[in-house]
């Protein structure tokens, strides 16, 4: 039952069925067809626009080469959106995974409320982002509940104009994303933890390993697949974030919280700069792909999920 990296190849072999006729691949056709129709073909068609000045409305447009891309990097507001997207993605991924892992470890214990709490902590991930964003917009208002709580606890000095101060607005947005994503990661880690045989941990406890040591040298490596999936999913969510920013701050104050997705939406639908927004979406695509590849390799190197 112990799953070491040497055991993996054996498992790999066993899961293939060599006698299976190749025609079974037809099973994949409906999925592939839908996927091609909805994502691949339109993406390819859309990509053409990244090299044009199409305004989303006119019947004609001109090809402008790489001008759209150059313009994006020359505009401080779009550079800001790229940086914001990276900050949001990395910070929320790191913190939401740390919190999720901590919650999972704590709830993978004998505490009586564990089942109720598991259900509860995942609930924010179920909420409609539009709802969450409105709720937090209210909570973060200058005279809103959050500042009210800080006052009540005598922490008045910590009060902020959360969404109005450009230095805090992005942090406020990230708090909301973390609130939503922590439960999501917790569930993945709980699943991973439940796959670790208790005897293994007990055996090492008998050997005299401390709790921290036990976690680091036994639990952590065995959790690698869970970490890979969880980090990948939160990272992709962070890189694509839209509703939270759009509803809470609209990208403001003064463009300080725009993400690539909100800027793409704004440029395309408010300014009619379709070419340049699709160029921006391609930059987003390249960023997501690069970061995922790096992250995947890094975790693979640690003996993670294959």
């Amino acid at each position: 039952m112990a799953r070491t990296s040497e055991a993996a190849p054996a498992a790999l072999k066993r899961r293939r069925i060599t006698s299976m006729p190749r025609t079974v691949l037809l099973f994949a056709v409906p999925a592939l067809a839908l996927y091609t129709f909805v994502l691949l073909v339109p993406t390819a068609r859309g990509t053409v626009f990244a090299f044009t000045n199409w305004d989303g409305l006119s019947r004609t447009f001109d090809f402008v080469g790489f001008n759209n891309f150059a313009a994006i990097f020359a505009n401080p507001d779009s550079v800001k959106a790229i940086i914001n997207t990276l900050i949001i993605a990395f910070v929320t991924t790191f913190i939401a995974n740390a919190i999720g892992l901590a919650l999972a470890v704590a709830l993978n214990s004998r505490i009586k409320s564990r089942n109720a709490l598991r259900v509860f902590f995942f609930a924010p991930a179920v909420l409609t982002p539009v709802v969450t964003a409105y709720l937090f917009k209210y909570i973060f208002a200058p005279l809103g509940p959050l500042n009210g709580v800080l006052d009540a606890f005598g922490l008045g000095v910590l009060k902020q104009d959360w969404l109005g101060d450009p230095n805090w607005a992005l942090i406020a947005v990230m708090i909301v994303i973390i609130w939503q994503q922590s439960g999501y990661t917790m569930v993945i880690y709980l699943a991973g933890l439940q796959g670790i045989p208790a005897e293994l941990l007990e055996a090492s406890a008998v050997d005299g390993a401390g709790a921290g040591r036990r976690f680091w040298s036994i639990t952590r490596p065995l959790l690698a697949p869970a970490i890979t999936i969880s980090v990948m999913l939160t990272l992709i969510h962070g890189l694509k974030v839209f509703a939270e920013v759009y509803v809470m701050t609209g990208g403001g104050p003064g463009n300080s919280t725009n993400s690539l997705s909100t800027l793409i939406y704004k440029n395309a639908f408010q300014f009619g700069l379709f070419g340049s927004s699709i160029a921006m979406a391609l930059i987003l695509l390249v960023m997501v792909a690069l970061i995922s590849a790096i992250q995947y390799r890094a975790l693979l190197a640690q003996g993670g999920h294959k």
Partner: peptide, 16 residues
């Protein structure tokens, strides 16, 4: 117009 509106927020926020 967008530069103006966002600009007012920026000036109030001390960003520009």
């Amino acid at each position: 117009s967008s530069a103006h509106k966002e600009g007012v927020q920026k000036v109030f926020g001390g960003q520009a």
